[in-house]
């Protein structure tokens, strides 16, 4: 086939026009895809009167499978009395989880050792009691769970920030902190005891 010069020029123009159109149209398409008619978490929405896209739950509704029938696990109480045991086995993983969550959510006020002298207290928040007093040591484990879930005095509740299982892990870790301040010397490995004695001097 022989190329017809005139025809070739016309085809070149057509090709250029097509490419320009492709670039321009795909540009429009990109913009459409960039902001799609969908909502992402916390986006505002003109559809609802309060302007939010996320809808609050209807009052008194329970999602299937989410009915809280386990009183001990969800309230820390049995027949209205605070329980003094974890509703699931305590493992090292649970305590480590509790430590991590405690440091995130509790240490700002209670400080990492549970003395109640965290940074927010140093900024002027009312100082919480240390965990290491005889009264606090006598509290049932379920009490700590209840305080995290519902608040106590000036302490706000942490129900929205900490899932139920993590609240129990934190309660278990509070016990660990209490124990740490009263651990007997006999529990310390023999090689370390001397070091502790020297440090205490």
């Amino acid at each position: 086939m022989r190329l017809n010069p005139d025809n070739f020029g016309a085809r070149l123009v057509r090709l250029a026009a097509f490419m320009a159109a492709a670039v321009l149209l795909s540009g429009c398409d990109l913009q459409d895809m960039y902001r799609q008619p969908k909502t992402e978490p916390y986006m505002s929405s003109p559809v609802f009167a309060d302007g939010t896209s996320a809808r609050p739950l209807e009052a008194d509704t329970v999602a299937r499978g989410h009915l809280r029938t386990n009183e001990v696990f969800y309230t820390g109480k049995l027949n209205g009395k605070e329980v003094d045991a974890l509703p699931f086995p305590v493992t090292k993983a649970v305590l480590l989880r509790g430590q991590g969550r405690f440091d995130i959510f509790c240490s700002p006020c209670h400080d990492r050792a549970g003395n109640g002298n965290g940074m927010i207290v140093q900024r002027g928040y009312r100082r919480p009691p240390p965990y290491h007093t005889p009264q606090m040591r006598a509290m049932a484990l379920g009490h700590f769970f209840d305080v995290i879930s519902n608040g106590f005095g000036v302490m706000p509740d942490y129900a929205a920030q900490i899932p139920v299982e993590d609240r129990w892990a934190i309660a278990a870790y509070v016990r660990t902190l209490q124990f740490s301040q009263y651990a007997p010397l006999a529990d310390v490995p023999a090689g370390e005891r001397q070091k502790l004695k020297e440090a205490a001097k």
Partner: peptide, 18 residues
């Protein structure tokens, strides 16, 4: 997928006093 933006209640945990 979303890191989460705190509800106003989280601000008020401290700023109800501070």
């Amino acid at each position: 997928s979303f890191a989460g933006l705190p509800p106003t209640k989280t601000c008020m945990n401290c700023h109800s006093i501070l």
